[in-house]
Design a protein around this nucleic acid. Structure first.
Lengths: 112, 112
DNA sequence: AGCTATACCTAGTTAAGCTATGCTTTTCAA
DNA sequence: TTGAAAAGCATAGCTTAACTAGGTATAGCT
């Protein structure tokens, strides 16, 4: 793993993958690049984390996979969000926000 | 685990424990209560998570433990932050903030 | 021809919180 | 006064989820 990039916190990977799929289908490799770029190079998804996560996403029906050809002319699998995936994403983001706010209230309580 | 309380995200427990020790020594049971209360009852630390974490904190020298008697007249172990613990906490909070901001930039990018 | 980047996949490891369980002591109600 | 509940500490084993390390293949460039 690169010097100053970090792995995603356990429990957030699938949420992040579904989130970047929200504005259109992407193939696996591109998903990792998108997350890396959107996070200003802070987050790094290893392939050994990504592909098992994508398998789980297909299995759960949160996205559908379709083989195609990439812009760089390679055989790739495109993932497209399903309604169930959209719903799951919304739930996960809500949970994440709730916990994140709770942690903030411990790290930075209103009354010092 | 109670209905609407959640466990802490993996990787944050020790940070939270050290944080609540920052304003003075506490015993284990009280640490869990403090985290629960400060988070508005959102976060719940199970005892099977707490005590192993406290062992690790002692082992790493982030806090010192001292047996004493609680306000409710029970034999308890008080944990007091060390300078190393303070330093570790600062590092962990900085890392946490960095990752949290990165995740936010994926969940809520500047340009929609 | 060979190197690099792109692209997918899986087996086995590791980290960390949780479940379940066990123990002791104090307090309070029946 | 005895029994249950709460306070308090602790550990063994389970589970989840990401990672390391390996493998395969193709496109494009030198």
């Amino acid at each position: 793993m690169p010097e100053d990039s970090l792995g995603v916190p356990p429990g957030t990977l699938i949420m992040l993958v579904l989130r970047v799929l929200q504005h259109g289908p992407l193939h696996g490799y591109a998903i990792a690049q998108r997350i890396h770029a959107l996070s200003a190079d802070v987050l790094q998804i290893e392939e050994g984390s990504l592909y098992p996560a994508l398998q789980k996403i297909l299995l759960k029906g949160w996205a559908e996979g379709e083989w195609g050809v990439s812009e760089t002319n390679r055989k790739v699998r495109f993932y497209q969000l399903t309604p169930a995936g959209r719903k799951h994403l919304a739930t996960k983001v809500a949970d994440y926000d709730r916990v994140t706010e709770a942690i903030q209230s411990i790290l930075r309580p209103a009354r010092s």
